[in-house]
Amino acid sequence: MEAVTENLDAYVDGFLTSLSIILWSLVGSLVLGLLIAASRVSPVPPLRRFGLFWVTTFRNTPLTVVLVFCAFGLPELGFNRSFFFFGVLGLVLYTSAFVCEAVRSGINSVPAGQAEAARSLGLTFSQCLGQVVLPQALRTVVPPLGSVLIAMFKNSAVVGAFGVGGDLWSTGATLTSARGYETLPVYIGVAIGYLIITLTAGALLQVLERKVAIAR
């Protein structure tokens, strides 16, 4: 395992880069996913159609293709940002579709009467969603949402191949290809880096699951 110990600083750099990709994408895909889910259940038909279009597009397109369009397509249209931005953008667009569907399934699990009662009190659509439906949906949403997000954490490895570089995955490639370390130990180190992130997230999710289960 000297491949790991000798290059600890490279691993730490890679870990931090991956972590920042993940955190930005986490915030972005949760916010966007929630908005798309809201438009999918909204009473306005064009919004519902837009939501469906969004989900259909990004859920059924491979992540790498989405990333290609972000990293090469947008600059072609004169939209120049850092590759970090494009990478996070691609991951957010892609993941938002899955977040949306997890949230929507949670919304559908809340009895219709709850929303009817909220609406009959005069709550607006967003109040109804925010005050009554989503808090109750949370309980059923947390487990599938957790799977979606952990999948996103792992998908962040793909972003490294689109100009970002320096993330955990590319650190592995640098150590094996350019510096000549043995493949297996290097990638065991890479795996450990991702496991630190995903296992921590998994533990947090379990705490959260227990919390929302009690809140009733």
Binding site: Q114, A117, L121, G122, V132, Q136
Partner: peptide, 23 residues
């Protein structure tokens, strides 16, 4: 829309299955 919500607030409704907010 908002107009409907405002009007609904003046109309009380009691349901067969109570529909109290469970949370």
């Amino acid at each position: 829309g908002k107009e409907l919500a405002r009007l609904r607030s003046d109309v009380g409704m009691v349901f067969q299955s109570f529909n109290l907010f469970a949370h």
